[in-house]
Design a protein around this nucleic acid. Structure first.
Lengths: 223, 223
DNA sequence: GCGTTTATCAAACGAATGTTTGAAACATAA
DNA sequence: TTATGTTTCAAACATTCGTTTGATAAACGC
């Protein structure tokens, strides 16, 4: 293994450890010792632990959102004016994820797990950062989903969009563990793209499920 | 508000704070000061912070899994021998969740967020604890899902089961935030049971989606 | 060459954490 | 009341954390 520079070694190691144990549970001392760099290196190169966490995300998400934007441009130009089917929107997202060259030395699933962590693990500053940096591209995506499912009531689509997101993020974030189980139980190797190809019809069918009638409850014990 | 005993005050406050900030990010000093009990009370009554975390889960999950087991007994006895439809299995789970009297002074959504946290936020000891304590009831549930979707190939069902789980866990874990957004955007208050009633048709449709043909890729760049 | 910037390093700092201690307060029963 | 067991409390303990410091080394421009 060729010796990378200090910054890259820190980023790779931090990414891996954050994905394994979470942000608060991973100390700078663990990171720097595993990365074989001096403890002070993190504060020297990144400024603080918070900034390191953000840098880990930025290294992946910056090129990703750039590519995803381009792919959405392409998709829209291919459908000049015509409405874009939901499946096409979803596949644009997933192929971007799958085909993007990873700036990381860790696998795709490591970063996926990280994204899942970022989503749940409140970490106030993290949510704010992701919102500020990548809110607009997320908005563009949801807008396309909206046009692709214009038959759905707004409220219904709102929730289904998050059901969809949940399936994706959750599965991706525990992908390594799940792949191991699947390979052990069914004796066949599973690739990331296989999981994604299974995910699309699932969420796609979910999005066009019949709309439920909400049954009001007689007693009102929760808001 | 009637003054509860020390143990309950600690449990309620811990549950709330854990759900808000995560486990590692919530210190015993924050918990005890908000609960208006002495710092040493946690170690006196629970032994350690880890034990407190487990106690928070046990207080909810013990009665829950007891009830859920009973409901599954009932469901099976009602379908003596006949196969149970998937929707019935899912609805048994959700009605158990919704109708269960909460041992908590916090709302259902607080605990849901906590469950989501527990699932993603690895916390080695937590995963082990949940697996040991509640693994068998989870296995019983998945077995019922299997019989209720016997037309699906095993591999396909395996992944779809986790897609389903993902939708549920993720939505529930960010339920409060999502409810706020929904209420602000659509000007109507959403109850936990409404979200669940929306979730069922979504995952149900996903489970019976057409089975995709996996397209092999020409170049093999990921495992 | 020299001067200046950039990077690495061991050591220490101050703050925050989970836990323990031993005394005080309280409750219960003989 | 006295004796005994339980609970509360302020204080301290031992670690661990992120961060800073000042010295040393390496790299670069001229």
């Amino acid at each position: 293994m060729a010796q990378l520079d200090t910054v890259s070694r820190i980023l790779d190691t931090a990414e891996m450890l954050f994905a394994e144990k979470g942000f608060a549970e991973t100390s700078l001392r663990t990171i720097t010792s595993k990365a074989k760099v001096n403890l002070a290196a993190v504060n020297y190169h990144f400024g603080s632990k918070k900034a390191l966490i953000q840098a880990v995300f930025a290294r992946y998400l910056d090129p990703f959102s750039k590519r995803f934007n381009e792919e959405m441009d392409l998709l829209e130009s291919r459908h000049q004016g015509q409405s874009i089917p939901l499946n096409a929107v979803l596949e644009t997202l997933t192929t971007t994820v799958i085909t993007m060259p990873s700036p990381t030395r860790n696998g795709l699933s490591v970063f996926m797990r990280l994204l899942g962590l970022a989503y749940t693990q409140a970490q106030g500053h993290m949510r704010r950062y992701l919102q500020e940096q990548y809110g607009s591209i997320f908005y563009r995506f949801t807008s396309m989903v909206r046009s692709a499912s214009s038959d759905l009531p707004d409220v219904e689509r709102f929730w289904r969009l998050h059901f969809m997101l949940g399936s994706a993020v959750f599965t991706m974030s525990s992908l390594d563990a799940l792949k191991d189980i699947a390979e052990q139980d069914f004796n066949e190797q599973t690739r990331v793209r296989d999981v994604v190809q299974r995910l699309i019809p699932f969420v796609s069918a979910g999005m066009s499920a019949p709309i439920p009638e909400l049954i009001p409850s007689e007693h009102q014990d929760d808001a």
